[in-house]
Amino acid sequence: DGGRREPLGLAQREQRNRWGLAFLVALLVVVVAKLVVLQGVDGAPYAQAAENDRMKIYPIAAVRGAITDRDGRPLAYSVDAERVVADPTLVEDPARTALALTTLLDVPAAELTEKLSAETRYVVLAEQVSTEVTGRIRALEERQGLFFEDDPVRLYPAGAVGGQVVGFVGRDGDGLAGIEQRYEDVLSGTDGEERVEVDGRGNPIPSGIDDTVPAVDGSTVGLTLDEDLQFVVQQRLDAACADGFTTTASAVVQEVATGKVVAMAGCPGYDPGSYNTTDPELLGNPVISEVYEPGSVMKAVTLAAAVEEGKARADTVLNVNGHIQAGDVVVTDAHDHAPIDFTVTGILAKSSNVGTIMLAREVGDSTFERYLRAFGLGSTTGIELPGESAA
């Protein structure tokens, strides 16, 4: 009996061995297949993920172009500053680091400690910090986990002078009003970036990869404004708005020969450097955005139409009363008067409302409208400022 059992035991062992071998072969096939997938099919994404872990990208901000007056005097320009950020996972002692930074950044230590202890890889500690201060931070022993990003400061040295024309930029550095907005593409430039290989603690590896795409700085935009004349105009407007009777006033000064605008302002104005604390209702340029009644300027348009259409000549005489019915209102001259003989030239010289209406009626409504449009009423001038309303 014993002799018959032994062959049976050997057969069982051989069968178990075959099953074990088959299992090992199957396991090996699975491992090899997984390796093939990792290396061949999914290799690129995993390699990219590994590279991303060891590469850190630092943005390089383009320096925004300046805005100058006609003589090159700056009305807006940018200075270097930096944003101080941190990777809390790399900060060994948040409280100690916060204590070292609190005076330099003028941020409470408790607030810094909370940020440096956050469960995230990126926190902003302070913005628009001067390069002198960030240089001192770089020299700290506790700078582990701290990083710096370009964060320029926009300055307006003339303050409110020309502010409504120059406009301002938002916190992200994009133009939100005036020339800053109109010439955003010219002023902003193109940001660059620096890709640096870092170790497990986030520190740059001296001999590692360091690829830099330099920023392309913005261009300067020169205006036709004259800063000195602009200052005088705004002084006069401010005085007018402070008389207790005037609420708003505007003025435009142009060169007669070229039509160039050398001063433009309205009151009340604002300082672009303090736009975020200014009443939003004041953050525009009323000279171009608000609609005004043309007033006596229309007399020149009306008389031009009458003369051009042959309805009158400069020396044509009209008997002009002191008042006239126009629709459902009675229009008078500056002072009501008995009928007076005025030449067409006299109507313009005396700014006679009644005489002007008489000439407009001679021209006719449809013809008069054609002249109004020919003179540009109802259309924009195309001035290089945003928000212009039709005249």
Score class of each variant (00 low, 15 high):
residue 141 E to Y: 02
residue 40 G to C: 11
residue 58 Y to T: 14
residue 89 T to P: 00
residue 312 A to K: 03
residue 367 T to F: 00
residue 240 A to Y: 03
residue 248 T to W: 04
residue 364 G to S: 05
residue 206 P to A: 15
residue 283 L to I: 07
residue 264 M to L: 14
residue 260 K to R: 14
residue 213 V to I: 15
residue 83 R to S: 04
residue 252 V to Y: 08
residue 328 D to G: 10
residue 322 G to T: 12
residue 327 G to F: 09
residue 228 D to C: 01
residue 174 D to P: 04
residue 292 Y to W: 08
residue 239 A to G: 11
residue 389 S to V: 13
residue 104 L to P: 07
residue 89 T to A: 05
residue 283 L to A: 10
residue 198 V to H: 04
residue 36 V to P: 02
residue 380 T to Q: 12
residue 329 V to R: 14
residue 303 L to A: 03
residue 304 A to S: 13
residue 25 V to N: 08
residue 104 L to I: 08
residue 275 Y to H: 15
residue 113 T to R: 12
residue 381 T to N: 01
residue 120 T to K: 05
residue 31 V to N: 03
residue 83 R to A: 02
residue 58 Y to D: 09
residue 362 E to F: 08
residue 50 A to R: 13
residue 11 A to T: 11
residue 250 S to N: 14
residue 118 A to E: 07
residue 75 L to A: 06
residue 23 F to N: 08
residue 325 Q to W: 12
residue 163 G to C: 07
residue 67 I to E: 03
residue 33 A to G: 09
residue 334 A to E: 09
residue 366 S to E: 13
residue 306 A to K: 07
residue 31 V to H: 04
residue 369 E to W: 07
residue 124 V to L: 09
residue 121 R to Q: 12
residue 195 R to S: 03
residue 246 T to E: 09
residue 64 R to S: 06
residue 250 S to R: 05
residue 116 L to C: 08
residue 323 H to W: 12
residue 151 D to K: 06
residue 100 A to W: 01
residue 199 D to Q: 10
residue 353 N to H: 07
residue 261 V to P: 02
residue 361 R to E: 12
residue 376 G to R: 01
